[in-house]
Design a protein around this nucleic acid. Structure first.
Lengths: 166, 166
DNA sequence: ACTGTTATGTTATAATGTAACATTTGTAGC
DNA sequence: GCTACAAATGTTACATTATAACATAACAGT
């Protein structure tokens, strides 16, 4: 079956973000349990910090937060946790921003397509086989074998555009 | 008319790269002349260095080279030249590599789609409206207005795959 | 408890990119 | 040519992002 999911849509400014966070953590716990991996306190804390919003978060911002409760934290603390979470598909890196964003669908590890609003900074994630198939088709024409993909689209989300038109 | 161009294909290892370089420089000169811009010696030199190969080049590698002939060179020397060249569509930044690659088609300033070989490091650039249209269509569904796009695909080019299969 | 593996602590440094201000060079009008 | 303004470069310092390397601690299987 072909995927065509808006994995993570733009949320209205008013949405109950606590639920997003709680759900993400419980998904992560489940995932690690099933895979026999350890969601250690540091890893979980970093994941929570990444999920503080639907905007990509910077590694050193995470570090600053970590230090508030654990002064022993250092860059490797954060980057190791992020590496683990990236590896498991629990977060994605937005390359064009050097920042990290949570992903609620670690199961089948994927690379999504990201839509990033210039105004509010929020990100929507798509996981769309039509895009992937098209890229595949294009690649095939010159004998290229795809193994990793990065699609990051910037622009303006509906909510921000409507705000501006008022 | 819809674009569907392999702007810059993978080149056989044996191709005459001098021609690529010369052509790129002459295109750049023309472009700047037409636009009333100055392709200063520094800018031209940086462009030449970016075009030393079909692999993305790192800013600090360019700097190292610049220093060999002009010890006064410093990071801003390179980044300013790159900013100018990026602005004019004479180079692109590959975000996922923090590296820069020449573009031979500055006329209508575009964002291409890049295919990057893990083995040889070479990059092919596509400028394809079918991809853009599809992304546009997807974006439209949730009211997103696209204004900038980054598509960077990694994998294995034909030549490298054939080498491995021997 | 012993042992190998995984995770974390710790220090230092590499790699990438920008701010801010001084100086020089080019250009347009006189 | 001279002047004045703008554009480009020089220079120093620093900000941001990320990794190397080695020590210690926590955990899991026997």
């Amino acid at each position: 079956m072909s995927k065509n999911k808006l994995l993570s849509p733009f949320k209205p400014a008013s949405h109950k973000h606590q639920k997003c966070l709680q759900s993400a953590i419980s998904v992560a716990k489940k995932h690690c349990e099933v895979e026999g991996l350890r969601l250690t306190p540091i890893r979980q804390r970093v994941l929570e910090l990444v999920w503080q919003s639907h905007e990509p978060v910077k590694a050193y911002d995470i570090l600053d937060e970590l230090k508030r409760s654990k002064s022993s934290s250092a860059p490797p603390t954060v980057y190791r946790a992020l590496d683990f979470l990236l590896e498991e598909g629990l977060v994605h890196k937005i390359e064009s921003l050097n920042a990290y964003i949570g992903c609620g669908n670690p199961k089948d590890i994927h690379k999504g397509q990201f839509f990033i609003c210039h105004d509010c900074g929020s990100v929507a994630e798509l996981d769309d086989d039509e895009i992937r198939d098209l890229l595949q088709k294009k690649a095939k024409r010159f004998g290229f074998e795809i193994n990793d993909e990065m699609v990051e689209i910037k622009g303006y989300c509906l909510e921000c555009r409507e705000l501006k038109n008022k």
